[in-house]
Amino acid sequence: MLTAVKNQGRVSFLSIKYALMQEMLNRVTFFTNILFMILNNASFIIQWIVLYSIQNNVGGYTFKQILLLWGIAAGTYGFSHFFFENAYDLSQIINEGKLDAYLVQPKNVLLSSITSKVKTSALGDIFYGYIMCFFAGLGVVDILLFTILSIIGGITLTAIAVLLGSLSFWFQKADMIAESGNGFMTNFATYPDGIFKGIVKVLLFTLIPVGIVNYLPISILTEHKVEFFFLIFLFMIAIVFFAFFLFYRGLKRYSSSNLMSMRI
């Protein structure tokens, strides 16, 4: 069992490594993507500077907490999109019959398919997360905690993308649902939860779990609430199991399109 996990880990690592090497073929484009993604994210700071010039506190968040919220949002998004970019294209892969290539590999089909592509600009998001930590004045221990929280959040985001993408095994137009669902997760992620009330707030901690991926980590980082850490960790385990279950349940319905293509 342990050897199988170790082997799978090695294969996934190699898959990501070769995908990254392919992206690095054009160095100028590679570094431009990373740098411009950092600039792209940084531009939103202007929005918050303007808002904090109106009020000292927006939705119960101080400016430092907003920086951390952006850090966590960028870190989780970056981790998920860099290592598991294909999780966001899963609908397309299923609809176009491109799973064939992974079915013949003697390894985990889901992990092989979602780790076969990296998104270079997501590295910019990861770096931006750490830049925000620096400006928010986090110490070394908190930066380590931030890293762990970004990984947990990134895996949770990936599991959500797999869940939504797996719907394509049952529904033809599920790609639109997946795109909208993943969009919800990023749209809400950079606004403080204090501005939302009632049913919307409940949804943000349940059906659209932005609260678990983004808001609770802020409480952990600023107030060191350990119980929240266990909560988000358990949520990650549960949603990952559910994602694997739904994907393999759907895989039984998968039919090949006899697509002939070359993968480089």
Binding site: I54, V58, G183, F184, N187, Y191, I195, K197
Partner: peptide, 25 residues
């Protein structure tokens, strides 16, 4: 048209977030 209609969701969410933000401020 179906693609445009699904695009409404993202558009609605953005407007909803801004409405909540300005209502708070």
């Amino acid at each position: 048209l179906a693609n445009i209609l699904f695009g409404f969701l993202g558009y609605f969410i953005m407007l909803f977030i801004f409405f909540q933000l300005w209502k708070y401020l």
